[in-house]
Simulated assay, not measured.
Amino acid sequence: MKHLETTYKTHDGIELYLQAWMVDVPKASLLLVHGLGEHSSRYLHLVEKLHASGVSVFTFDGRGHGKSVKGDPTAFFESYEDYLRDIDSLFGKVKSYVPGVPAFIYGHSMGGGLVAAYVLKYNPDTKGVILSSPAIKEAEGTSKTLIAMSSVISKYFPKLKALKLDAQKISRIPAEVEKYLNDPLVYTDAVPARTGYELLQMMRFIQANASKFKLPVLLIHGSDDGLTNPKGSELLYEKATSADKTLKVFPGGFHELINDLDREEVIKLIVAWIGSRFIDPYSKG
C-alpha cells in the first residue's frame, strides 16, 4: 500500500496530522474520522480490507488527539463546530485528490457523532456514510444535575478532567483492551469538561435534526456497548429520511466492533456495503 503522511493547518492555526493509503486506480475514496481519545493509526486492519477492494482511505488525528498534539494527547477541543470545519476541509481534499470516483465518510464513536452532525450541517456530496457506534444519545440515567452544571464547568474550568471512561468496555477481547491501554497515542485519562460539554451539544443537535438526515447510511452498534448508547443509532435510523438506510446491531457487541469478537463479520459488512455503492469500472456489462 502506498502510504502518505502530511500535516494540515486548520482555519484557527492548529496543525493536524494526516495520513492516506492510496490505490493506484481507485474505485472510491473514504474519509475516516476516529473516536474520542484514540487516533487514526488504529484502523490499519480496516484500511487494508478497504484498500484491497479498491478504496483509497484518508484519515487524520483530530484536535487534541494522537500525533496532532505536541507532547501527550489531551482529547481537548474548544468547539465541536471547529471539528466539523476540519472534517469539511479534509473531505474537500479527499475529493480533489481522488476526483471522479464515489466518496464515502466513516466515523466511529465521537467520530460517528461528528460525521452525523457534519452531514446535517454541511450536506456533503458523498455516496454514503458509515457510522460505527456513533455518539448520538447520552447514556441512560445520565444525571440531569450534571448536565445542567456542565455548561458552567465547561466555561470556567474547560480543561478540568470531568468524566472517566471505562476502557474495559471497548472490547470483549482482553488483548485488544491491553493494546488500547498500552498505546502511548491513546488518551485514557478523564475527558476534559469542555470536550464533554461540546459532545453533549453535538448529540442534542443530532437528536433535534435527525429527520433531516437524507444520505445513504449504514449504522452499526453493539447491543452491549457501554460507552455510546445504542439507542442513539436506533433514533437516527428511525428518524432519518434516507431512502437507503441500514441498522445492524451486533448481539452482545461492545464498543469497538472492528476490534471485538465479531470483527471479521463487521469488517466484511462495511467493505461490502461500500462496494455495493460504487460501480466497478472493470466489470463487464
Rank of each mutant, 00 (worst) to 15 (best):
Y8C: 09
Y8R: 03
E15H: 02
W21C: 03
M22Q: 11
V23I: 00
D24P: 03
D24E: 06
V25L: 01
G35D: 08
G37S: 02
Y43V: 12
L44H: 10
H45G: 12
K49M: 14
S53F: 07
S53N: 13
V57F: 10
R63K: 05
H65F: 01
K67T: 02
S68F: 04
F77T: 05
Y83N: 00
L84K: 14
G92S: 12
V94Q: 08
P99Q: 06
G100D: 15
F104E: 09
G107C: 02
G112N: 03
V115N: 04
K121T: 03
L131F: 02
S133H: 03
A148I: 05
A148K: 05
A148P: 01
S151H: 14
I153A: 07
K161I: 11
L163P: 12
A167L: 12
R172F: 07
I173A: 03
E176I: 02
V177C: 02
N182P: 04
D183R: 05
Y197D: 04
Y197P: 01
A208W: 10
V217A: 10
L219N: 04
H221C: 08
G226V: 05
T228F: 11
P230T: 10
Y237G: 04
Y237I: 08
D244Q: 01
D244A: 05
V249T: 12
F254C: 11
F254I: 06
H255Y: 06
L257M: 11
D260H: 09
L261E: 12
I267D: 09
L269C: 13
A272P: 00
R277D: 06
F278C: 13
I279H: 15
D280F: 04
P281E: 06
